[in-house]
Design a binder for these strands. Structure first.
Lengths: 162, 162
DNA sequence: CCTTTATGGATGTATAATGTCCATAATAAA
DNA sequence: TTTATTATGGACATTATACATCCATAAAGG
């Protein structure tokens, strides 16, 4: 289980955009050469980010990409969910058909009396989902802007750094 | 990014063992039919768990598997690391060769003055690792015994439930 | 000895991730 | 309006990984 390389490249591309963000557009060639990947490959990633409203794209000369909203409103979780998909980290195996009875969650258990739909989930899934939520809350709290704020001062300058 | 089905099956198999755990051995056939998977497939999983000291195995008639230690000392994290491997959720892409300078962590930053080796990691990796640690601490705190303790009372009985 | 059981190698298949190429559309600049 | 520039999306090829099975072997109990 690992994050895909595409997710890493998406994050680095967004950091690049956030750095250049003066309402300017950055072309795929600048982005891809900066990351050391092919432009045909990176353009797939950027296209996903655009479909999800993370970036805007414009065609034509002096076109390219820009962030669709401020960098402090683009979280790591946003980016990961676009690239990796929104499926949960763990899904029950056989529609509960073959779980050991001990793994079945008690439907009356304390936290679940409010009638949440996950009451029927097996306890394995309950733990896995809890773990995922822990991770997601951390990823939601860290934004592209966070990276800029914590970058080494030597790296902060007007032009692009390559 | 998802946990493999093997991880889910490993967890369910261990829950089954924990339930039957009176120093008894449970054969691969009972386990695999309980989970609804083939025994040849599940035996690979059990073999990994044995190599990592999660379960013990014995051959011969009336042989089979048993937990190698109490269920409250087998965490979800233990099992996941055996089946999924111990690689980190995120690895830097190109040995730092192509990161945007802004993504480089400041080596002198506050939390890192103590000289931790991760000082050189890029900030993307730092966030991803932080997220992973959040998830791991949750998974470390939840054990096979936790599942038994939270199971519906109707499921708790002497024999196997299938 | 013979049955039962786990083990590990070899192998096959399915699915997903990675990466490239090309035709097309849209736009700004000349 | 033409032309150069740029993003887009389909099709495709290439791995890598997960999933799954079969079989020969070894170990232990009856």
């Amino acid at each position: 289980m690992q994050f895909s390389k595409s997710t890493g490249n998406a994050l680095h591309a967004l950091i690049h955009l956030a750095h250049s963000d003066r309402g300017q557009h950055v072309g795929i060639k600048e982005l891809s050469s900066s990351l050391g990947v092919s432009d045909s490959y990176l353009s797939k990633i950027m296209s996903k980010l655009r479909q999800d409203g993370i970036v805007r794209a414009s065609t034509g000369a002096s076109g390219g990409y820009e962030l669709a909203r401020p960098a402090d409103r683009i979280s790591f979780l946003d980016v990961i969910q676009v690239i990796e998909g929104r499926q949960q980290l763990y899904e029950c195996l056989n529609a509960n058909a073959h779980h050991h009875p001990l793994a079945e969650a008690a439907e009356w258990s304390e936290e679940e009396e409010s009638g949440h739909p996950e009451s029927k989930d097996c306890l394995v899934k309950k733990v896995m989902n809890g773990a995922e939520l822990q991770m997601q809350s951390y990823l939601r709290a860290h934004t592209i802007q966070w990276v800029l704020d914590h970058a080494s001062p030597g790296s902060i300058r007007g032009g692009n750094g390559e």
